[in-house]
């Protein structure tokens, strides 16, 4: 499903005229590249970098885009997902941005991509050694809600002083009987640094452990880059008597019937009707193409798919983000 993108401008592969390859200037890329190498050398540590202004607002993935722009080359194939979906505004925009400025191929197939930029999900399909997963990070500091002062947070990281985070999780247990954090669930990387996994659901936390692909994290507003090298120990914080657990659903995906994926709740009417569908749109579409069916009737599934634009599109032209409701 690699798209011969309409925006892939020049045949010489130079990308959009008037811009450097992949938008950023070479000096900025070098600075970010040095930061990425240091981030890989100290897994989980947040390296400050000189974040640049990108042509879209903070909160829309400027950090992830700067990381992607610094690593991407002609030979790369880029996939961008937003909450697991390839077809949401944020994902479509970023994919089109790199198709235009770097003239790279884009895809929706996880296995075909060499770089996957993601907002708030880890793809359901397994990733392999040659791939790089780039996360967009709104708040890189896991301690920020507990300690607003940057200088104090930095000390706590320097001296591995993470008792405060354990106390906050304990307070959850005292109050609710369980750890109530369901996303941005803090992890320890390589037994040394406490790290925010970005607002991925805690469902995805176990995937980060021993992940074969390189994971890079970019926070544009906060100007931090951090990384998890492949095959690195990533442990979600917990207690011996309250071990870490991921979300579970009583239902399966209504479209493809998957039992082991992260599900989004879809409200169907104003009488409490609802269904659950896979959050990873590519994974769900592939399973349906393979003949898997959920509880939803074929006609209803087709109507739903058409409504959210998740049907088998002839070709993704980067403009198909209409929300028909």
């Amino acid at each position: 499903m690699t798209t011969a993108s309409a925006e892939k401008t020049a045949e010489n592969g130079a990308g959009e005229e008037g811009y450097n390859f992949a938008y950023l200037d070479e000096q900025t890329k070098r600075m970010i590249r040095r930061c990425i190498l240091k981030a890989v050398a100290v897994p989980g540590y947040q390296v400050p970098f000189g974040g640049r202004e990108m042509p879209l607002p903070y909160g829309w993935g400027t950090g992830g885009m700067q990381v992607t722009a610094s690593i991407i080359g002609h030979d790369d194939t880029l996939k961008v997902i937003d909450q697991g979906a390839d077809d949401t505004t944020n994902a479509v925009n970023i994919r089109r941005f790199f198709a235009r400025t770097a003239a790279v191929d884009t895809t929706e197939v996880t296995a075909e991509a060499s770089i996957v930029q993601t907002r708030h999900r880890v793809p359901e399909d397994p990733m392999t050694e040659g791939q790089i997963l780039v996360y967009q990070v709104p708040q890189p500091e896991p301690l920020r809600k507990l300690e607003p002062r940057e200088i104090e947070c930095r000390k706590m990281h320097a001296y591995k002083e993470y008792g405060l985070m354990q106390v906050s999780l304990y307070e959850d247990i005292a109050r609710f009987g369980e750890i109530a954090t369901s996303y941005s669930y803090p992890v320890m990387v390589n037994d040394r640094y406490l790290m925010s996994p970005t607002p991925i659901p805690k469902f995805d936390n176990p995937k980060m452990h021993d992940f074969p692909a390189l994971q890079l994290f970019g926070a544009g507003r906060e100007k931090r880059i951090y990384a998890i090298p492949p095959f690195t120990k990533v442990k979600s914080l917990d207690f011996d008597d309250h071990p870490f657990e991921v979300q579970q659903w009583e239902e399966n995906c209504a479209l493809c019937g998957a039992e082991d994926t992260f599900l989004d709740e879809v409200i169907l009417d104003d009488r409490g009707g609802k269904m659950y569908v896979c959050s990873d749109s590519h994974y769900c579409a592939r399973r349906r193409a393979e003949g898997h069916r959920g509880t939803l009737s074929d006609s209803a599934a087709a109507a739903y798919a058409a409504a959210v634009g998740a049907a088998d599109r002839p070709s993704e032209d980067g403009e198909s983000a209409e929300w028909v409701t």
């Binding site: 390859f21 070479e26 890329k29 590249r33 890989v40 390189l214 090298p229 492949p230």
Partner: peptide, 19 residues
């Protein structure tokens, strides 16, 4: 080709540091 050569070399360096 400073732009693309340095990108390729950097990816090799990144791969080397990551593995």
């Amino acid at each position: 080709d400073p732009v693309h050569d340095s990108q390729r070399v950097f990816r090799a360096l990144l791969e080397a540091m990551a593995r």
